[in-house]
């Protein structure tokens, strides 16, 4: 067992899950309530990772984070080293790659909260923020948990984006899926099988626990609104 790869993968998934909770909830709430005319463009951007090959996404992220780009350059000047092939770059890429998996279930749940309850909350003197935390979030807990679990599970198993942005540095960017690929490349099928089985078992466990805990969830595909 490559414990460093397992540890790294879990750490990455947890970080991504936490970041996506923090930015996914406000983003989903905004998408659910905004009447901005060009909102559909942002909806399309959020959903892009669902349809793009990970290599395309990874390629552009690599370019965007490289020293040639303003952002990458700024990072290098602030931290003294380049952004690509670090844990941070892996986390950023994974957040973007898993964004729809967090946002879509939250958005679906937020949209299903009875508009009248939100109106009632406002009439009773609550600000939009208070309404969000006291009414919308508790009534959408299923969707929020689903979003968190899906983004966690999705990050566990990602491969293409990690390979493009993170490379294959043991302990830094070498996740379980990369390790499996390595094993197969080295014709070590037994080693690949151990890791693959672990990943499959863990993913199945996580998902089935979530589905069991929340039976009203969106079966398999979270896109339905």
């Amino acid at each position: 067992m490559e414990w460093s790869a397992i540890y790294l993968t879990l750490r990455l998934a947890l970080v991504v899950c936490a970041v996506l909770l923090a930015i996914g909830m406000p983003l989903a709430w905004w998408l659910a309530t905004s009447r901005w005319r060009w909102k559909f463009l942002l909806e399309a951007v959020v959903a892009l990772p669902l349809v793009l090959p990970p290599t395309v996404l990874g390629f552009y992220l690599l370019v965007a984070m490289g020293s040639e780009s303003p952002a990458g350059n700024l990072y290098r000047r602030l931290f003294g080293h380049g952004l690509p092939f670090t844990f941070t770059s892996l986390a950023i890429a994974s957040v973007i790659y898993s964004l729809p998996f967090a946002v879509q279930p939250m958005l679906a749940a937020f949209s299903q909260v009875d508009r009248n309850l939100i109106n009632a909350s406002a009439i009773l003197g609550a600000s939009r923020t208070r309404t969000f935390w006291r009414i919308v979030v508790p009534l959408s807990s299923g969707g929020i948990v689903t979003g968190a679990v899906l983004s966690f599970a999705h990050t566990l198993g990602e491969f293409g984006v990690v390979l493009m942005v993170g490379g294959n540095i043991p302990g830094v960017t070498r996740t379980i899926s990369i390790a499996i690929y390595d094993h197969v490349q080295a014709l070590d099928y037994a080693g690949a099988n151990r890791m693959a089985l672990l990943l499959m078992g863990f993913s199945f466990l996580t998902l089935s626990l979530t589905y069991a805990a929340n039976r009203r969830m969106w079966a398999v595909w979270p896109l339905r609104r």
Partner: peptide, 8 residues
Amino acid sequence: PERRRIGY
């Protein structure tokens, strides 16, 4: 609405 102090 939250500042109108209206019962509804």
